[in-house]
Amino acid sequence: PREAYIVTIEKGKPGQTVTWYQLRADHPKPDSLISEHPTAQEAMDAKKRYED
């Protein structure tokens, strides 16, 4: 089974940042970016789909 994890990042100019959620996995390479999402819920949904 595949495993993934969610990383929170800040995008934008200082003082005007927006939080994004990255879905990452250690396949095919360590810390590979799988997808980016504007909400934590979307990231969790993507994580479930990826791991299923």
Rank of each mutant, 00 (worst) to 15 (best):
P1V: 14
P1A: 14
P1F: 14
P1E: 11
P1N: 15
R2W: 14
R2S: 09
R2Y: 14
R2D: 07
R2H: 14
R2A: 10
E3V: 15
E3Q: 14
E3T: 15
A4H: 04
A4K: 01
A4V: 12
A4W: 10
A4D: 00
A4L: 14
A4P: 09
Y5N: 04
Y5E: 02
Y5W: 15
Y5T: 05
Y5M: 04
I6Y: 02
I6K: 00
I6M: 04
I6V: 09
I6R: 00
V7S: 06
V7W: 05
V7P: 00
V7G: 03
V7C: 05
V7Y: 06
T8R: 13
T8M: 14
T8G: 05
T8P: 14
I9T: 07
I9H: 05
I9N: 03
I9M: 07
E10S: 10
E10I: 13
E10D: 11
E10G: 05
K11N: 03
K11E: 04
K11W: 06
K11Y: 12
K11D: 04
G12L: 04
G12P: 03
G12T: 07
K13G: 13
K13R: 11
K13D: 13
P14I: 11
P14T: 07
P14Y: 12
P14A: 10
G15I: 03
G15H: 07
G15A: 05
G15C: 05
G15V: 03
Q16W: 09
Q16A: 10
T17Y: 11
T17C: 06
T17D: 04
V18L: 09
V18K: 14
V18G: 05
T19C: 04
T19E: 06
T19M: 10
T19R: 08
W20G: 03
W20E: 03
W20A: 05
W20R: 05
W20S: 06
Y21Q: 00
Y21V: 01
Y21L: 01
Y21R: 00
Y21G: 00
Q22E: 11
Q22H: 04
Q22F: 02
Q22D: 01
Q22M: 03
L23M: 03
L23Y: 01
L23N: 01
R24S: 02
R24A: 02
R24G: 01
R24L: 08
A25C: 08
A25T: 15
A25H: 05
D26P: 11
D26R: 12
D26S: 13
D26A: 09
H27T: 10
H27L: 11
H27M: 10
H27D: 11
H27I: 13
H27R: 09
P28S: 07
P28D: 09
P28F: 07
P28E: 08
K29S: 13
K29P: 12
K29N: 13
P30L: 11
P30G: 10
D31L: 08
D31R: 10
D31Q: 11
D31E: 10
D31I: 03
S32G: 06
S32E: 07
S32R: 14
S32Y: 14
I34K: 04
I34P: 00
I34H: 02
I34E: 01
S35M: 01
S35E: 02
E36I: 07
E36M: 05
E36H: 02
E36L: 04
H37N: 00
H37L: 02
P38S: 12
P38R: 13
T39R: 04
T39D: 06
T39Q: 03
A40R: 15
A40H: 15
A40M: 15
A40L: 15
A40N: 10
Q41D: 10
Q41Y: 08
Q41H: 11
Q41F: 08
E42L: 09
E42K: 07
E42G: 08
A43D: 00
A43Y: 00
A43H: 00
M44G: 06
M44K: 10
M44I: 14
D45G: 06
D45R: 10
D45C: 07
D45T: 08
D45S: 09
A46K: 02
K47R: 07
K47M: 11
K47N: 02
K47Y: 05
K47F: 05
K48D: 08
K48C: 05
K48H: 11
K48R: 13
R49G: 06
R49Q: 12
R49W: 12
Y50A: 03
Y50L: 07
Y50P: 00
Y50W: 15
Y50F: 11
E51G: 05
E51W: 05
E51C: 03
D52W: 13
D52F: 12
